[in-house]
Write a protein that binds this DNA or RNA. Sequence first.
RNA 1: GCGCCAGUAGCUCAGUUGGAUAGAGCAACGGACUUCUAAUCCGUAGGCCGAGGGUUCGAAUCCUUCCUGGCGCGCCA
Length: 553
Amino acid sequence: MKDQLRLAIKAALQQCYADNSLVSGEFLDEIQLEIPKNPDHGDFSTNLALALAKPERKAPRKIAETLIAALQGNPLCDRIEIAGPGFINFRLAATCWYAVLDQITAQGDQYGRSKIGAGTKIQVEFVSANPTGPLHIGHGRGAVVGDAVAAVLQAAGFEVQREYYVNDAGNQILTLGRSILLRLRELQGEAIEFPEDGYQAPYIIDLAVKYRAEQGELVGVSEAEAIESCARFGVAEVLKWIEVDLQSFGIHFDSWYSEKSLYDQGLVDEELIKLKEKGLSFEEDGALWLRTTEFGDDKDRVLIKSDGSYTYFASDVAYHMEKFDRGFNRVIDVWGADHHGYIPRMKAMLAGLGHPPEALEVLLIQMVNLLRDGKPYIMGKRSGNFITLKEVIDEVGRDACRFFFLMRRCDSQLDFDLELAKQQSSDNPVYYVQYAHARVCSINRNAAESGMELLPSDVVDYSRLELPEELALVKQLARFPETVVGAALSYEPHRIIFYLQDLAAQFHSYYNRQRVLVDDPITSRARLALVNSVRTVLANALQLLGLSAPERM
RNA sequence: GCGCCAGUAGCUCAGUUGGAUAGAGCAACGGACUUCUAAUCCGUAGGCCGAGGGUUCGAAUCCUUCCUGGCGCGCCA
């Protein structure tokens, strides 16, 4: 709809240049067309005349008049007028809008999907929590946002892969192994002293118990081998928990990528050699450094520590280069905001190795402040004082939990009060949206009972939809595809949430004001077609965000 | 000290990337169930868009200086 109008305007502009009624020849790549807040200003509005005022050196309103003359007689438009300083407002013919209903009916669950992404390959890496303990609520936000960003990109025609990076190498894994081993010895009757820096949470004991049951007792192996064995066992077990939790949250990964495998394949050393060859790394104080300051970082960063072990950064270099080797045009990392200081070195590394820094997009998810009865709930893995994601989902419900995490822009902090979330579960906004869907389904049941079925759109008389609120609903439905595109290109899935709330509000209002099933069958059928288009769009949007669309509530 | 994010109604937040009279939910107040599901609707009230300066036809939005809150600034992960 919008695009058709944009083309018409472009043609008109061309015509004006051709007959010299406008002279600058200036072309704006993107003619701005927006939907005015005030419906009195028409269905669409452009500031084109204002923007051309300078190059044309003419009053905006004069330019607008010329353009309108060229647009006269266009079948799309019912009325075109000049307003304010030189806005051109378009009111589209009602018949144009009815075409949207045909489109929705024809496309069904595909309505809202587009090909803007044109198959561009994007990887979204998210969650990637260390496999040393169960997921907590902070991971939940990143998980839902990452999943929704991926979904929205897919809907916009990008080819998307969801990946979980498994940090199964490094110190924290050794700590996990040591902690399990100590608990194991404890189970075997040894007196142990649990160190401050070990993982003290109770689940470590569960792991030890399971280890003992499945692997037997550790005898005749060195300390290092014992730790390694416990660590591998622990990682595998914890990853199973994580996968189950994510599944119950409706999140599925296409790929689980092991950090350890980067070392095993020698990819880390390979990249380090490349960096050395490019003269980007240097040795100092017995460590190997990357000269990230050359690309805008505030200090150089260590790749290999003076004790010979690798930093996280070293494997991240290899990991991200490997992503591009796999053919992704763009790579999105979803991180907690507390890692934001890490971005400059990553971008510097990419620049150094010949990739445009824009190819990596880091989405920072601000903290979730977990509250219980209004009081902050301090969490720490080591202390074992945390609430797992699973517990939260069980308490609040999957749909409500996902909805809650998606309701805000990811760069603003989120207060999550468990008591409040539970209390509100009956008037939570997610139910408001789902209820709209259930209501349409209910109307359908009633229609079927009275022998009225949904007819093919070519026999529905849409001209019966002449009430302003009916036209407004259709216009809202027409905005769905561009909302999805906007959400995808800006990585802002919350836009879909707000769209859903708007659409549901309009529907509920219509429902209360007008009956769908009235005495006149022609009108009933037209209204039935309308509300079923609403149902389709609600269902598509809910599905996109991993939310259910119940038929009864 | 430096950097990132935020500051919009009493509270929680949107604001289509610079447009016309700044919006919604909750809370408050007043109404609507004999009617397709009241988990709904209708109405009232609520604002110096943190503060100052700048850019232009036009600023909540852009540039700048401050103020407040959160988070970072390791040869930790």
